[in-house]
């Protein structure tokens, strides 16, 4: 029998860990949920961020938290370039080539990371990586709390940007009717590039937090891609809050299934629950 105390502890941990899943989903929520760009390299780009942060740490001694300041702008530029130079051109030829092209990028990324860093499992460490918070009788890894705060912050920033800024209106308008958007004087090519760039900037941040929380390998991205799509679809396309809540839900399921069934069952339960939730989903806006 599981004691109530352990159960309660696990629920809190699950909610906070959910922040990590939300982080994984938020970048995709912008690129796919809002802009409808099918980026099959999403998971691998997050993992790429993990590895570059790893390299910065092992070669230059830069703490992962600080490497966010370097990585996020770099990934922003990378995203801008990928959209402008590759995805936009593929889309013009035939919209259906976009998933194929991003899939190709995914394979290139996975194999590059494999070549450089070997299949060995890696992790990121910061000085508080092993800290745990003891609040009352709860025992919570600090990193989980940071995951949650980061996800919440990014979700709020995105939500406010999309709803209240001209950029946000332009992004949403361009995804609904790009001709009408052009007629509003909106440079839709530029807006698509900016949106994708933002998506990657978020993924860079997600990557660092991911690497701090769990171990990663060159092929870890695949599972996260699937989970990200699942969370975005459950939360509702275009809803940042929905994505966040979806992530929290998945985090809960992750921890509780580990508690009740064992760690081997966690990924299985996560994926199964995504399927079940998709069958019974409701819109959250």
């Amino acid at each position: 029998m599981i004691s109530l105390h352990i159960l309660f502890n696990s629920i809190i941990m699950g909610l906070l860990l959910g922040g990590l899943y939300a982080l994984v989903g938020l970048g995709l929520s912008l690129s796919f949920g809002v802009m409808k760009i099918i980026n099959l390299a999403h998971g691998d780009l997050i993992i790429l961020s993990c590895y570059i942060a790893f390299a910065l740490q092992t070669l230059a001694g830069i703490d992962p938290i600080f490497s966010i300041i370097i990585l996020s702008p770099c990934f922003f530029l990378l995203g801008y370039a990928i959209q402008k130079l590759i995805i936009a051109r593929a889309f013009k030829i035939n919209p259906q080539t976009v998933p194929i092209i991003t899939f190709a990028i995914s394979i290139i990324l996975q194999n590059t990371c494999l070549l450089i860093w070997t299949p060995l499992s890696r992790g990121l460490l910061t000085y508080f990586s092993l800290y745990s918070l003891s609040i009352y009788s709860l025992n919570i890894p600090l990193i989980y709390l940071l995951d949650f705060i980061a996800a919440l912050a990014i979700m709020i920033v995105l939500k406010v940007m999309l709803k209240r800024s001209y950029l946000g209106v332009a992004i949403r308008a361009s995804s609904q009717d790009w001709i009408a958007s052009q007629l509003m004087g909106i440079n839709t090519d530029y807006i698509y590039a900016i949106a994708f760039a933002l998506s990657l900037a978020i993924s860079a941040i997600s990557g660092v937090f991911l690497g701090l929380t769990v171990p990663f390998t060159p092929t870890s991205g695949v599972a996260y891609l699937l989970i990200a799509f699942g969370i975005v679809l459950i939360g509702g396309l275009g809803s940042m809050l929905g994505c966040f809540l979806g992530g929290i839900t998945i985090g809960l399921i992750h921890v509780l299934s580990g508690l009740i069934l064992g760690t081997g069952w966690q990924l299985f339960c996560v994926c199964l629950s995504i399927i079940l939730l998709l069958l019974f989903k409701r819109e959250v806006k």
Partner: peptide, 30 residues
């Protein structure tokens, strides 16, 4: 458009998932 020409297109083409106000705000982009 930014030079000062505006078109009300055939079929209206309003942004369906924006509110009335947001549609108008989109119109004030420039």
């Amino acid at each position: 458009v930014s030079l000062g020409i505006s078109l009300v297109p055939e079929g209206k083409r309003i942004f369906p998932e924006l509110t009335v106000l947001e549609n108008l705000i989109a119109g004030s982009y420039i």
